[in-house]
């Protein structure tokens, strides 16, 4: 029982990390590049973001899973893609502010190449929004993957996670409450932990930029 519970947590965390990495890496690359080069590419990226946003995250994942089946890699891919539009939006607006700064303009006039400006100058200055995004998306990844598993569309038994356990033990909740209570508590602890961590990171970075917490919170409203 204990080994099943621990194994389930391991699978859930590994999948959540993979989906977060995929979503934040691709989403921020698209957002930063679009904001820096502007023009047609920016328009194209933002219209794609608009279309993707029209699918609620869990529904996008459900749609993909319904077409190919509950494969582990597919769930990771679906959740990762469903993060793309939000990440791209946040990083795009952060980059828009940054790329108007004088030190970027100077480097442009000196003839620095676009990809060098992005990797050597913009990226190091975007570490704080990136950290916050990683935290938010990790929490959401855990929520969506365990939610899909709970609905019965998770990875199949050898890779069963806490969501799957709640789903299978739910019918016997009165006879064996621990089968539901333990995985539910563990998921709650995990998401509360990642969320508190994200909140702490956000507060620290807000302090660094010397803005009121409220103003920053309003601007970073997820969409």
């Amino acid at each position: 029982m204990l080994s099943r519970v621990l194994g389930g947590g391991w699978v859930l965390l590994a999948m959540a990390f993979a989906a977060t990495t995929l979503g934040v890496a691709v989403g921020s690359a698209a957002g930063i590049y679009a904001a820096y080069v502007r023009g047609r590419i920016d328009g194209l990226v933002m219209r794609t973001v608009d279309v993707l946003l029209a699918f609620p995250q869990i529904i996008f994942a459900l749609l993909l899973v319904s077409l190919v089946g509950p494969k582990l890699w597919l769930i990771v891919l679906a959740v990762g893609i469903s993060h793309l539009p939000q990440v791209a939006r946040v990083l795009r607006s952060a980059t828009l502010d940054l790329s108007e700064r004088d030190f970027i303009k100077v480097l442009e006039l000196q003839g620095m190449r676009t990809h060098r400006i992005i990797t050597k100058e913009l990226l190091p200055n975007l570490v704080s929004p990136l950290m916050v995004e990683i935290g938010i998306r990790l929490t959401y990844s855990i929520i969506i993957i365990s939610g899909l598993s709970f609905l019965g569309f998770g990875p199949q038994p050898p890779a069963a996670n806490w969501g799957t356990m709640i789903n299978t033990n739910r019918v016997a909740i009165v006879a064996n409450p621990w089968g539901v209570v333990v995985p539910a508590l563990l998921i709650a602890l995990l998401t509360i932990g990642t969320n508190t961590f994200t909140d702490a990171v956000a507060r620290v970075t807000i302090g660094l930029e010397r803005r009121t917490e409220e103003a920053a919170l309003l601007e970073s409203a997820p969409t």
Partner: peptide
Amino acid sequence: FLGVAALPTFVVAIALIILLSTL
């Protein structure tokens, strides 16, 4: 609210079922 905000929907639902309608 920082704690509750992080909870997945189905965990909240299961908690309510345990608390108010079964155990």
